[in-house]
Amino acid sequence: MRMAKNPSLTALRRRPSHARPASAVASTDSHGSDGEHLRSDKASLRSCNDTLRSLLRSAVRRHRAEALSVLRGMLAPDSSCRPDSNTCAIVFSSWSKQSLPLDNEALGLLVQMANMGFFPTDAFHFTQLVNKLCRSGATSAAWDFLHAVKDAGGAVETPACNALLTGLATARDFARMNLLFSEMKGMGVRPNVANEK
C-alpha cells in the first residue's frame, strides 16, 4: 500500500516508531534480513489493525470514512498491510454492532472482503451482518455477501440463511427465496421455523 497517498494513514506516522506502517519501518532498514522484513510487516499490520479498531469505535462521523479508507488501502492488491483474522474480527464485530446502516462503500468492501476470503468465521457475526443488511433494506447486498462467503468456502449455516430468507420475504423477493431454499438443500442446510428476527 502506498501510505503517502492515503491521507487516513497520516495519523499512523505521528505514532511512536513501534506503531508506524511497514513502509516507514522498512525504509529505516531496507537492507535487513527476511526476518526483519517479516517483523516490520507484522508491526505494520498491528498498527493498521489498531488504527482501524480506533476509528471504528469512534462516534465521530469523519472517522467512519477514514476507517473505510484504511480498509480499502489494506485490501488493495499492492498493500503491504494485508488483512488477517484480527482485521476481520475488528471489522465484522464493529459493523454488526453499529446501529448506523452500512453505506454503499462499506457494502462494497464487505462483499470484496468475502470475495477475497475474508469473512466472519463465527455464525453469530455472520448472521448479525446478514440481519443488519436485510433490516436496512440492503437485501441484495445481503444476498451478495452470503454468496461471496459461500463461494469463498466459508460455512453458511441455518441462522444466516434464515436471516436472508426473512429479508427476502419482507422484500417479497419470492424468486430468490425459492433459489435460496434450493441452494440450502444442496448444501445440506435445513431452514427452521423460527426465523431470525
Rank of each mutant, 00 (worst) to 15 (best):
M1I: 06
R2Y: 07
M3N: 04
N6V: 15
L9H: 09
T10G: 03
L12P: 13
S17T: 06
A26K: 11
D29E: 15
E36A: 13
E36V: 13
R39I: 07
S40K: 09
S40V: 05
A43M: 12
A43D: 11
A43W: 05
S47N: 05
S47Y: 11
C48M: 13
T51K: 13
L52N: 07
R53A: 15
S54L: 04
L56D: 03
L56C: 08
L56R: 05
R57P: 00
R61T: 12
R62L: 10
R62Q: 13
R62A: 13
A65Q: 14
E66V: 00
L68T: 06
S69A: 08
L71Q: 08
G73I: 05
M74S: 10
L75K: 06
L75D: 05
A76L: 05
P77N: 10
S80G: 14
T87S: 15
F92G: 09
F92I: 09
S93C: 14
S93V: 06
S94K: 06
W95D: 11
W95V: 03
W95I: 04
W95R: 02
K97T: 10
L102K: 02
A106I: 09
L107Y: 01
L107N: 05
V111I: 14
Q112H: 12
M113L: 05
M113D: 08
A114I: 04
G117M: 14
T121C: 07
D122N: 15
T127Y: 12
Q128L: 13
V130T: 11
C134H: 01
T139S: 12
S140L: 04
A141P: 00
A142H: 01
D144W: 01
F145V: 03
H147F: 14
D151R: 12
A152N: 08
G154S: 11
C161M: 01
C161A: 04
N162V: 00
L164H: 00
T166G: 03
G167V: 02
G167R: 00
L168Q: 06
T170G: 01
A171S: 15
R172H: 06
D173Q: 06
E183Q: 11
E183T: 01
V193N: 02
K197I: 03
K197T: 10
